[in-house]
Design a protein around this nucleic acid. Structure first.
Lengths: 212, 212
DNA sequence: ACCTGACACTAAACGGGAATCACCCAGACC
DNA sequence: GGTCTGGGTGATTCCCGTTTAGTGTCAGGT
């Protein structure tokens, strides 16, 4: 008498996804779950089930959970970076560039709330520094694109207060502030998002940058 | 041969902390750990060990982990609220009130980074709405104290843009933005905190509120 | 045709979180 | 005495992320 199989072990084994095929499948499933249920909701087991594979299999392709989700964040930020790069090359006034970059930034956040939280509302020290290096670098490059025009403005003597460095950080932070609050505290009663973005942009631009 | 006791079971039982004494002990221990190690670092077991009691005992006094930490947050926000209340009663210009409230807000955040994160960088939906009702209410009252002077300013026709509601939210958000970024991304290179606070305040006040 | 090793994959287990269970015991009250 | 009550306990449950030890499959050398 041979060994009786105790369970149908998943209706046979999932065939190999050759090359980087499986990796892509995992990312796609993880992104779907992550967008729907956030960081905590996107568990290794759930992702694995969605792919139709054992949870261990994910570790063939990614070092750990954070690497999966940061990869998703990376792809999202690449889009943001490309918007900034495109804007920075357009032949428009530096002030207008800044305004459009910040506008794009806020819209990006509202469109990808979970990803935005993952990357910019950094689950504090939960994710180690080195792990998010790739994402961090991309964020830096976004910020570089943004601070280019700010430096132009500063060089033209049109900064009302602060240095190019602090002004860039404050402008960025003001936009981050409104989107992060609206995203993380959806139960509060907020003014319409469009109005908040508008008031933030107008207020902060006029407050920091002198009229021509 | 009788059963050997595997461990000395804690050097006898911890005597009862009568009344609300034990509750206070737990809060004190939890606060210390939470401030030092953040939300994830403050585990039920660690807190219980620090008090010298089994982890189960904490559930005698608190419904769950979040209630312990939110209680800590509550106490901290009460301080912030009392600052705001005191400021709102001083016989000074509404604009000056707003400025001082925002300044106090940012300093509070830098002084209590972990508490600030817990309350204002809300681990999204992780903590259910009802659970944080008490803290939320306190937050609302802080915001009410803050939006009082803003409404005064709006009524005086001195708002450059937006309504009293959206202006208040944007002012708050700008301050939240800078402190939350500095707190959650300490590895980035930031301008000095004093400068960031200054530039934020100046920029956002001048940008939203007309000179007298 | 046969080994062999690399590879994608697996079940099972580990350790550590929050929370719950059934029980225990000291003291108050009758 | 008895009984109730409330703070206390160890063991247990459930779910995490991650690790271990192994299994099936296939390409390539002989």
């Amino acid at each position: 008498m041979t060994v009786a199989l105790k369970k149908p072990p998943r209706s046979a084994r999932k065939p190999k996804g050759d090359g980087h095929m499986r990796r892509g499948e995992i990312l796609a499933a993880a992104e779907k779950i992550f967008i729907a249920e956030g960081y905590a909701g996107a568990t290794i087991r759930k992702i694995a089930d969605a792919v139709g594979v054992s949870s261990t299999a994910l570790y063939m392709h990614f070092r750990d959970k954070d690497q999966i989700l940061l990869e998703i964040g990376k792809e999202a930020i690449e889009k943001l970076l490309s918007i900034n790069v495109a804007l920075s090359q357009e032949p428009i006034d530096a002030v207008e560039k800044v305004r459009r970059m910040l506008d794009a930034y806020m819209r990006f956040a509202f469109d990808n709330p979970n990803t935005y939280q993952l990357v910019f509302c950094g689950s504090n020290e939960a994710i180690s520094v080195e792990k998010q290096q790739a994402v961090s670098d991309l964020g830096d490059r976004c910020f570089d694109e943004f601070s280019g025009p700010i430096r132009e403005i500063a060089a033209a003597g049109r900064l009302k207060t602060g240095t190019a460095e602090s002004a860039a950080q404050v402008l960025w932070a003001a936009c981050h502030g409104i989107v992060s609050l609206v995203i993380t505290k959806p139960s509060r009663s907020w003014a319409p998002a469009e109005e908040l973005m508008q008031v933030t942009l107008d207020g902060v631009m006029h407050g920091l940058i002198a009229e021509r």
